[in-house]
Design a protein around this nucleic acid. Structure first.
Length: 271
DNA sequence: AGTGCGGCCTGTCCGC
DNA sequence: TGCGGACAGGCCGCAC
C-alpha cells in the first residue's frame, strides 16, 4: 500500500526510463479509477514529451510539454516500465506507450488510484493546493506540529495522518513514528507537548527517510518498478505486530481503532 | 473550522 | 471444501 516512501521509490525507478521520452499513444483498458481517466489525457498526451517526474505528497507529476499527468497509486496501485510487447495482465488498466520500445503501465487492482491531466500549474490543482508541507522539508518540524495542534481535540494519530498537517504519513508510518516518539496514538493533538512535537517531527523524518532508503515497505501488493518488493518490513516496530514484544521495553504490542483506522502501539512506553 | 464517517474496490483471511 | 462476510488501505466529500 503505497505511502510516501513507496511513491518516492516508484518515482526514482520510473524516472530514468521516461524522462525525455515521447508518448506515442495512451491505451486505456479500464478508465474507471477513483475518477474516470479523462479523455483530455488520452488526446493531449499522444505526441507529448515527458520532461520530468516529480512528486508532491503521494501524487506523482509527469510534466510534459503539453501539460501534466497527476497520478495517485491509491492503496494498491503500481507503475512498471516494461517492453512494449508485454501482454497486459488483469488490473493493468492504462499504458503510456513510449518511443524507444517501452511503455509505462499502471496496475491498480482496487482502482483507488487516479490518473488526471491538467494544462495549468499542477500545484494549483484542487487536489494539491491545500496540502500541508512535505515531511522531509525544513518547513516541517516540531514548531509546525505544535502550532497547528493548538486547540485540536482529534487524536494525534489522526492529526498526523491529516494531509493538511503534513503529507505522506499514512497508517503504517503514523504508528511507527508515534512509537519512536513515545506518544500514545489516542492522545489529543492539543495535549502533545512542545518537546513531544519535536520528537514526533524527527521520528517522522527518520522513519520516512529510512523507508525510502530501502525501497519502501511491502505488505501485500506493493512492488518497486523492477518488480522487487520493498525491504522496510524488518524495521517495523509495531505495525501489524499485535501481541509481539515491543522492541524497546518488551511489553506486548497492542492494537486499537483510532479514528476508524487500526493503530498499533506499546501502552507501556507510549504516553 | 474541526471532526467524524461513508463510500469507493478487490484480494485475503477467518469462521462456519 | 466452499462460501459469506469482515477487513485492509487513502482520501474525497459530505454532514454535523
Amino acid at each position: 500500500m503505497p505511502e510516501l516512501p513507496e511513491v518516492e521509490t516508484t518515482r526514482r525507478g520510473v524516472r530514468p526510463h521516461v524522462e525525455g521520452r515521447r508518448i506515442e499513444r495512451v491505451v486505456v483498458r479500464d478508465g474507471r479509477l477513483r475518477w474516470p481517466v479523462p479523455r483530455s489525457l488520452v488526446r493531449e498526451l499522444a505526441g507529448a514529451t515527458i520532461r520530468c517526474v516529480e512528486r508532491r505528497a503521494k501524487y506523482l507529476l509527469f510534466r510534459t510539454d503539453r501539460g501534466t499527468v497527476i497520478a495517485h497509486l491509491g492503496m494498491s496501485g503500481s507503475l512498471r516500465v516494461v517492453p512494449a510487447a508485454t501482454p497486459p495482465r488483469t488490473h493493468d488498466h492504462v499504458d503510456l506507450v513510449l518511443d524507444g520500445g517501452q511503455l509505462l503501465r499502471l496496475r491498480d487492482p482496487r482502482r483507488f488510484g487516479c490518473l488526471l491531466f491538467t494544462r495549468g500549474d499542477p500545484l494549483a490543482h484542487p487536489l494539491l493546493k491545500d496540502l500541508g508541507p512535505e515531511p522531509l522539508s525544513s518547513e516541517f518540524d516540531g514548531g509546525h506540529l505544535f502550532r497547528r495542534a493548538r486547540g485540536r481535540t482529534a487524536a494525534v494519530k489522526s492529526f498526523l495522518m491529516d494531509a493538511s498537517t503534513v503529507v505522506g504519513v499514512g497508517n503504517i508510518y503514523a504508528s511507527e513514528s508515534l512509537w519512536r516518539a513515545a506518544i500514545a496514538p489516542r492522545r489529543r493533538a492539543g495535549r502533545v507537548t512542545r518537546l513531544q512535537c519535536d520528537a514526533l517531527a524527527a521520528a517522522v523524518k527518520k522513519v520516512l527517510s529510512e523507508a525510502i532508503e530501502v525501497g519502501g515497505t511491502t505488505l501485500r501488493d506493493f512492488q518497486k518498478v523492477d518488480g522487487e518488493p520493498g525491504r522496510f518490513n524488518p524495521s517495523l516496530a509495531v505495525y501489524d505486530r499485535t501481541g509481539r514484544p515491543c522492541p524497546r521495553c518488551g511489553a506486548p504490542i497492542r492494537s486499537a481503532r483510532v479514528g476508524q483506522r487500526s493503530a498499533f502501539f506499546c501502552s507501556r512506553c507510549q504516553k
